[in-house]
């Protein structure tokens, strides 16, 4: 049973026309899928469909996670600026009516797992970009979701931080094995992060190609220097260059 499935979905926005599709995607339990594609190809729209935040104009969306079992990490940390890291991470529990003591304890534990045990009382403005993103990831994982959706989570971060966070995501994934859909416009990042990479064509986005990535998750050290990594990156990049030139 798939965790989430999009079947021939199409999304039309009034005044903007077709944003996505027809598009198919199956996300299996415990699997990390990366969606890579040019800006404006409908990656974020596909993610909102998977989250159940939007309905497709045509096609079918199937989701098995129940309420509170889906989490989203956005490109920006999307924290409440008036609330401490702990209160931000405890938000899913507070909205679900979990007792405050339990919510705080779980939030503190989640912050500790992303290496922010010392920053539980800090406000977002006091955190660096990387730390704020860690708080956002802690908030997404605190409910132990079955499906974690990440919308270009590292796009605003520097290279060192994004690499460190990528490995952290793998380590955290290894604990509870949620299904993860990771959206990015960076081919290398997609290949590094996922079991399977779905490359999309330019707007309206369709599946251009799919590639399975060999190797274990979390990644072995220096995975980026291996031949199979380089080969898959080049294959996907070439294929995407073709779709771009077809458009241009």
């Amino acid at each position: 049973m798939a965790t989430a499935r999009l079947t021939a979905v199409e999304v039309d926005y009034p005044g903007r026309g077709r944003a996505l599709g027809p598009f198919d995607l199956t996300v299996n339990p415990g699997e990390i899928v990366a969606i890579v594609g040019p800006s404006g190809c409908g990656k974020s729209t596909a993610l909102r469909l998977l989250a159940g935040l939007e309905d497709p104009t045509r096609g079918a969306v199937e989701r098995t996670p129940g309420r509170g079992e889906t989490s989203v990490v956005f490109q920006a940390p999307t924290l409440m600026p008036w609330a401490s890291a702990r209160t931000n991470v405890a938000l899913p529990f507070e909205l679900a009516g979990t007792p405050k003591g339990q919510a705080r304890a779980d939030a503190d534990a989640a912050l500790e797992r992303v290496g922010l045990a010392d920053a539980v009382d800090a406000k977002p403005a006091q955190l660096s970009g990387g730390m704020a993103m860690r708080v956002s990831i802690a908030r997404a994982l605190v409910t132990q979701p079955k499906l974690l959706l990440m919308d270009e989570p590292f796009a605003a971060l520097d290279e060192i931080t994004r690499r460190a966070l990528g490995d952290d995501i793998h380590r955290l994934w290894d604990d509870t094995k949620p299904a993860i859909v990771f959206v990015t416009h960076n081919v290398e990042e997609a290949v590094y992060m996922a079991h399977r990479v779905v490359a999309m064509s330019a707007a309206p986005g369709r599946v251009h190609m799919t590639a399975d990535v060999p190797g274990e998750l979390p990644r072995a050290p220096h995975f980026r220097t291996t031949t199979e990594f380089r080969n898959i990156v080049e294959t996907i990049s070439d294929a995407m260059a073709d779709t771009m030139s077809a458009v241009a």
Partner: peptide
Amino acid sequence: SDRDLERLFDLYGATKWQRLWRLRIPSAL
């Protein structure tokens, strides 16, 4: 209020009042 924060409140099934007190009013301050 931030659109993605609104989406997050949708995702976690926030009630109208939770949205008002925990998101809209602090954002309006």
